[in-house]
Design a protein around this nucleic acid. Structure first.
Lengths: 149, 149
DNA sequence: GAAGATTGACGGCTCAATCTTG
DNA sequence: CAAGATTGAGCCGTCAATCTTC
């Protein structure tokens, strides 16, 4: 006998799923000395030919300017990234992948992609579009509510 | 012309939705001087007649023992909770809601529930069961993968 | 003044180490 | 030795304040 799920059940399930994503990500990247935040930056830079404005990163990652700064400090210290001056606007910063950073990404990326396929491939192709739609619907409702708060 | 969503798209959508949940939660609780972690504890205690073993909280919140300790320190300092000795096992701690904690919960809970209904009510009743199922499927795949890592 | 970046303060999470109790 | 709780260190996120540059 299953109870009909109410809105609150959806919230709990969403939180628990996200918690599992974080746990797995952290455990996966840890042997490489990376965190998921750091890998996301490595990943974005790699698909952009290893060169990006820091501002573009902030937009893509939906994260505050402050967070990026500190994470990048650590990645620079680990010789994965390099900061360069912007040619036209001296306020901005260009981020450049170092050889070590690119090498690390090349080593991780295939396994990472395989893992994403394996886990999120459990949603059958027919259900992906509706599932995506529901997540988008929720996100819009959340942002709407956030706006008039 | 819409591209068929691949597994990676689902991951991105899930992360963005969770990010929106956190943003809204933080903004909602902030005027009450609470964080969402603190409200979740307040909430669990309230539905358990204001009295719980700390161990039960750790299990329910899927969080490490360390995290709870510090959050509870702050809530005790804010006079929302009280630590009591366990009658049978002196290693354990019992958490008890103070009058101030119960009062705060009574003030917040109705608005909170209304917000959850409004946001997660955007998923139509017919879609809730499948949506929940997909989240559960993902969570199991994530935990399976985490286990053999 | 506004925009981009950085730093500091604070909350929350993890893990490892420690302490007390069973 | 194992279990429950706590603390400390490290990472990430927020916001507010500051600095440089537009």
């Amino acid at each position: 006998m299953e109870r009909k799920p109410n809105p609150h059940d959806l919230l709990v399930a969403l939180l628990q799923t996200q918690s599992a994503v974080e746990r797995l990500s952290d455990a996966f990247f840890q042997p490489f000395g990376l965190t998921s935040a750091q890998f996301n930056i490595l990943n974005l830079l790699s698909v952009n030919s290893g060169r990006m404005e820091q501002l573009a990163l902030v937009d893509a990652l939906l994260v505050g300017k402050s967070s990026i700064s500190i994470v990048i400090n650590r990645m620079v210290r680990a010789d994965l990234l390099r900061r360069e001056a912007h040619p036209r606007d001296r306020r901005q910063v260009i981020l450049v992948l170092t050889p070590k950073g690119r090498g690390l990404w090349k080593k991780i990326a295939p396994t990472y992609e395989a893992g994403v396929q394996e886990v999120f491939g459990t949603i059958t192709p027919a259900r992906r579009q509706p599932f995506l739609l529901e997540l988008t619907t929720l996100r819009e409702a959340l942002n709407r509510r956030l706006a008039d708060l």
